[in-house]
Design a protein around this nucleic acid. Structure first.
Lengths: 127, 127
DNA sequence: AGGTTATATAACCTATTGGTTAAATATTAG
DNA sequence: CTAATATTTAACCAATAGGTTATATAACCT
């Protein structure tokens, strides 16, 4: 997973890690405190932190025996930018247009519209 | 990976899948055409499509022997919404505000900040 | 029916992920 | 130095991911 964007999205693809980021958004804290809400072992949290750290989302300091973690949201900016390019595809207005165009598409072809008797995996659009 | 958000981010955490979505943003197309730019086998692309489909990002139809894929960006909306909550952390302007608030937070007990380097959240050590 | 095209599935492989427990490390306190 | 605390690393495990090749399925076209 060489690229930054993949690392960022992969890091976000885990609820534990997202919860850690949410906690860090409230301020810098220690690993132990981060781990507290979860029912997993400390090494597991440590691994999650390493994933976040390698994705550049968490930076750490050293203070005595603590390794305080703090949020570094910079990589999220790139991710948000990527998503932004798709905004028009989820805008409600365009959704309606989409559905309209889709109906046109399916009504248009003069081909014999053989009934879709096939298996149910493509039932999504059949309203 | 039970939740929708995790499925969405996980689906986006692969450059091939992001490229597939980018292609689909230009319009519905077949699996073969989707696979063409990549140097991987067709089953590999098929698997990527299945990941995207289970994440709800791609819907498929049936047209003769083709299974046209089309983008369904709805799940991206939730992802973008999640990221949006962190926008203030990557905006440079608010970054300055953050730092200011952070200093205030840590300077609170005393009046003047006299080189108090300790971070507040891990001070349970005062015995 | 038989052949071609488009796509999916099966079976397999290796690397990575997410978790565990046990041991090591780093730092402070006494 | 020793003990305590915070955290990481090591070794292991099961499940998943991402790829392969070979085979199967589905629909079309003679």
């Amino acid at each position: 997973m060489e690229d930054q964007l993949s690392a960022t999205f992969a890091a976000l693809a885990d609820p534990t890690r997202r919860a850690i980021l949410a906690r860090l958004a409230m301020g810098e804290t220690s690993v132990t405190e981060l781990a507290e809400p979860f029912q997993m072992s400390m090494p597991a949290v440590s691994k999650h932190l390493k994933v976040l750290e390698r994705a550049g989302l968490v930076a750490r300091g050293r203070e005595a025996q603590w390794r305080p973690c703090r949020l570094d949201a910079a990589p999220l900016k790139e991710a948000a930018g990527w998503l932004e390019a798709y905004r028009r595809f989820w805008s409600a207005h365009v959704d309606a247009l989409e559905r309209y165009l889709d109906r046109m598409e399916h009504a248009k072809p003069a081909k014999k519209n053989t009934n879709n008797k096939r298996r149910g995996s493509d039932r999504k659009k059949e309203k």
